[in-house]
Design a protein around this nucleic acid. Structure first.
Ligand SMILES: [Zn+2]
Ligand SMILES: [Zn+2]
Ligand SMILES: [Zn+2]
Ligand SMILES: [Zn+2]
Lengths: 139, 139
DNA sequence: ATTGCAGATGCAAGGGGTTGCATCTGCAAT
DNA sequence: ATTGCAGATGCAACCCCTTGCATCTGCAAT
């Protein structure tokens, strides 16, 4: 369990400060049942704190991503979605035709990650990927 | 070698028409030495045909992609880039720290494509991917 | 408790890309 | 050569996201 104290420490260790906006935005992502979009976060936090600016939401999500507290992915619906790291790593298959998304375990990409490390000495960040294509129903 | 006649056929087979705009845009992508961006295409075609609208460029590239004449990729510089299919399939590794891009052969992703087909019955479109991470110089 | 200041925020302008709609045009049928 | 019309274009408004800048504030040092 990550506490507010842990977050303060993690931020200050990198020279960042804990602000009410950051806390509320992180709460919104952590409390979301599913992948949550920037404007959903914005609207939700605005209910408690109407002065919040949308650019703060974008900047905070960038920071939380950098600190490894959230992951981001683009499921192809024209906006980026976020996900608390507490819910574990996974990936998605997205069908171009029907729009269905299939969840995949992190391990599916392990061989690729290993191959890139071995052959190219490249440390790939494959934490929350969406792969597009055609699902079995639409072939 | 793909001729204008081939393109007319490919278009009309799908119920699409050949317009001067489409021909000029395809020429710009085919003639580019490297991955070319939408606004580079726009500016280049505008030299011959100043009336061209940028939304026509976006719509045409979408169509050419659908027909398999160009591939698209996002190398992380805030704009999408295009590439003629004539130049063959490949992928890219992009370093988050130094911005360097390393070219990869298509075959690197073959095992993944096969695994997704076998395990999920999913036909992944992995024609021109950019994978982000940290290169060997920046580790 | 005060102070100082680097880091954070709000604001507004701007950049890349998409979309609805009225007009135009390639092209197939006559 | 004309005609008809679905497909294509130009235009303007819009959406998602980023950025420069002036102001504000968390927090460490005193
Ligand atoms: Zn996910
Ligand atoms: Zn499907
Ligand atoms: Zn490429
Ligand atoms: Zn690097």
């Amino acid at each position: 369990m990550i506490t507010t104290g842990d977050i303060v420490n993690k931020l200050s260790r990198h020279g960042y400060r804990l602000t009410p906006q950051r806390l509320m935005i992180l709460d919104a992502v952590d409390g979301a049942d599913d992948h949550i979009s920037t404007d959903e976060i914005y609207m939700q936090v605005c209910d408690q704190y109407p002065h919040l600016n949308i650019s703060t939401v974008y900047r905070t999500l960038e920071l939380l991503k950098e600190l490894g507290l959230v992951t981001e992915t683009d499921l192809g619906d024209g906006r980026v979605r976020y996900h608390s790291i507490k819910k574990g790593h996974h990936h998605h298959l997205v069908c171009h035709k029907c729009g269905q998304t299939i969840d995949m375990d992190e391990s599916v990409l392990s061989p690729l990650k290993a191959a890139l490390s071995r052959d190219y000495d490249f440390d790939a960040e494959l934490s929350h990927l969406a792969i597009f294509g055609i699902c079995k129903n639409c072939r």
